[in-house]
Design a protein around this nucleic acid. Structure first.
Length: 429
DNA sequence: TCTGGGGTCCTAGGACCC
DNA sequence: TCTGGGGTCCTAGGACCC
């Protein structure tokens, strides 16, 4: 049986989540901003048509926003994560061979569907997701992941396709013609650096050119990754479906502040908050870790202000997932990096050397008390339980502070319709 | 005034060992 | 006129993704 993949990609996902709960937003230009209301991370087709770019700083769009009454939202991650979960659960009803690739995309193995039914199958996926979640999706069907990526890109530019495109029955000539219309930079796995190098060295400008390139030369001058992309464009599947999410090897929590921060006390609060969050993520994936790094930076865009950036890491004696153990080290690190007289803009925490909690128990020795570690684990489990049940930060560590005036701005966040009872949608008749 | 926050994998080169 | 060679492990940096 031939391989067949479906890539299901939510259209303008964050904007669509906002629209799903606010009918007044339909057919209007909508923007969603990054943390701190910094730059554009999602835009509706109407906003795109007005010339607003992905990643553009929000302050640059101010005039357009006013002129065209664009609806602007701060990121509402609780809402998007929950909506994503609903979409993925819906997709899981179509196949058990599902790879959740990102918050708004999933690959499905659809090899079990007969070639003549594939297009219908894609349409059915699209309609079901729309009915169950109110999120519009595009579906690309092809023999490799890379080609299915291209199919969804084409779908989005091409309204008559009605959201589904099946490349599996294309003849070689038809496929070549399509690939020749795809710019190199739009191929999955080819970023700006590779685009420049490929253009400059071998006149490779389109997906078709890359498909025809000498695979061995590519391997030598670039990497196996690019070689795989070449093969995938030729219809040879080399990037497998990954149905099991792998535990993360590094966990980072980093955020810029709502305003510049100058005092050590506030930096300590921020670093403690990010540390607590990172270790919580660590426990969620049932891991432990023994390395933490902390970094601080001033605002790199403020060219005339004095700049400072530093990062330090330290090992813990053995892997743990006990927040206070990490807090002690993190606070120590931030104190030794802190230099007065700077306006700090961002801080972050990164946890690495991650191992599974199960492995941990097997090879412990030395200054280690199983009983003590067991008590710590019980305490953390209780904290997590309370915060899951009553909402994030119902209980937290004193070092995180209570004012948190440095916190990021989210001036236009919509209600967390699906995850907070107090913010549930009210329908008035 | 205002410019995001996560992740992944690969490769080259150095340290170290025998 | 001359100073081994091969293997492994680790890390930093570079590239990519959403």
């Amino acid at each position: 049986m031939n391989n067949a993949f479906a890539l299901v990609d939510c259209n303008n996902f964050y904007c669509s989540c906002e629209r799903a709960f606010n009918a007044a937003l339909h057919n209007k230009p909508v923007l969603v901003l990054s943390n701190n209301d910094g730059c554009v991370v999602a835009r509706s087709n109407e906003a795109r048509a007005l010339g607003i770019r992905m990643g553009q700083p929000a302050f640059e769009c101010r005039e357009l926003i006013e002129q065209h009454a664009i609806q602007v939202f701060s990121s509402n991650y609780s809402l998007y994560a929950d909506m994503s979960d609903r979409v993925m659960k819906t997709l899981a009803t179509f196949t058990s061979r599902l790879e959740v690739y990102s918050i708004d995309e999933a690959f499905l193995d659809v090899s079990h569907v007969g070639a003549e039914h594939l297009l219908d199958y894609g349409r059915q996926i699209r309609e079901t997701v729309w009915q169950c979640t109110g999120i519009p999706v595009s579906v690309g069907l092809a023999t490799t992941k890379t080609l299915s990526k291209i199919a969804t890109e084409v779908v989005k530019q091409n309204p008559p396709s009605q959201g589904v495109l099946n490349l599996t029955h294309y003849s070689e000539a038809e496929l070549d013609e399509l690939l020749d219309s795809i710019a190199l930079k739009d191929v999955w796995g080819i970023g700006p650096r590779y685009t420049n190098r490929l253009q400059a060295s071998r006149n490779i400008f389109t997906a078709k050119n890359l498909k025809d390139a000498d695979e061995h030369w590519i391997r030598k001058r670039f990497s196996v990754m690019v070689q795989r992309t070449v093969l995938e464009l030729r219809g040879i599947a080399c990037i497998p479906l990954e149905t099991e999410p792998k535990p993360k090897k590094g966990i980072m929590t980093a955020k810029s502040f709502g305003r510049p921060v100058e005092s050590l006390a506030e930096l300590e609060e921020a670093v403690a908050t990010y540390t607590a969050r990172a270790v919580e993520k660590l426990r969620n994936q049932e891991s432990a870790a023994c390395c933490i790094s902390v970094f601080l930076t001033t605002n790199p865009f403020q060219h005339d202000a004095p700049q400072y950036a530093n990062s330090l890491s330290r090992m813990l004696p053995f892997p743990t997932s006990f927040t206070p153990d990490f807090l002690n080290v993190a606070l120590d690190l931030v104190r030794s990096m802190y230099q007065p007289g700077f306006r700090y803009k961002k801080a972050g925490v990164c946890i690495s050397k991650i191992v599974s909690q199960e492995v941990l128990q097997a090879d412990l020795f030395g200054d280690y008390s199983l009983e003590r570690e067991y008590k710590k684990a019980r305490l953390m489990a209780m904290v997590d339980f309370i915060n899951r049940w009553w909402g994030q930060n119902t209980i937290f560590f004193g070092a995180q502070g209570i004012g948190q005036e440095w916190k990021m701005r989210q001036e236009r966040r919509s209600p967390r319709f699906t995850t907070q009872w107090g913010e549930i949608l009210v329908v008035r008749t």
